[in-house]
Design a protein around this nucleic acid. Structure first.
Lengths: 111, 111
DNA sequence: TAACTATATAACTATATATTTATATAGTCA
DNA sequence: TGACTATATAAATATATAGTTATATAGTTA
């Protein structure tokens, strides 16, 4: 990371924020093996349709997913597979820590 | 990213959340060229000392920074340089989009 | 057109958290 | 010890946002 100005840091923070929510990650995770419509994603995320719709439009606003309506349904898919690189990096770090540091485990377990 | 269970997604979300705040990113950015004490970080982040302290203890709880008190001061440093890989990935994506998509620019500019 | 299905949105509530102000704690040095 | 400096924490406020319920919108099919 090169030295970043104020503005840039805010963009980056917003990007991370889009990924900082379990339901949205569940949706992104579910989209790994191809597009799914809102109904399917609602089932998978085990929340209300309205809630999923809200998360989807946020993800779409941030350019993380693509939207395509066909017939009666709206299909979402991953716009940029680079998201998964990010998640993989994070998962690696987390799993490394799980082995090495009991303290971190405690933190993540909290709540 | 392999298929992740509920629990894992929550860990990942928490990790992203730690990075989803401009002041914390500013601190991490400032720590790129070595440890700094709380006073220095307060100046750099242009907020109150109390606020920086809170952000620092959050970063420390999540294992992103290390804490070492020497004499009167407390010095913080990066615990895991892999953070910067993450930020770099995000910055790349953002800058790509800045060029290609006016819409995304609009989103990031909002507020 | 009317009934139906799928998705989005508005209004609301509840909760989390960033920030501030004031204060406590701990180290340093005269 | 007392004055001083640096950091952490507590309490309070303001704000953002996840989730819910109800409703609007748009497409489908009889």
């Amino acid at each position: 990371m090169s030295k970043l100005d104020e503005r840039a840091l805010e963009y980056v923070a917003k990007y991370f924020k889009a990924l900082a929510e379990p339901t949205r990650l569940k949706v992104l995770n579910a989209l790994q093996d191809g597009e799914k419509n809102v109904g399917q994603l609602t089932e998978i995320s085990r929340t209300t349709q309205a809630n999923v719709s809200k998360h989807l439009s946020l993800l779409s606003d941030y350019g993380l997913v693509k939207r395509e309506s066909r017939g009666n349904c709206v299909y979402y898919s991953i716009a940029d597979p680079a998201i998964y690189e990010l998640c993989e990096l994070v998962c690696e770090q987390i799993s490394n820590r799980m082995f090495h540091e009991a303290d971190v485990k405690k933190i993540f377990m909290a709540n």
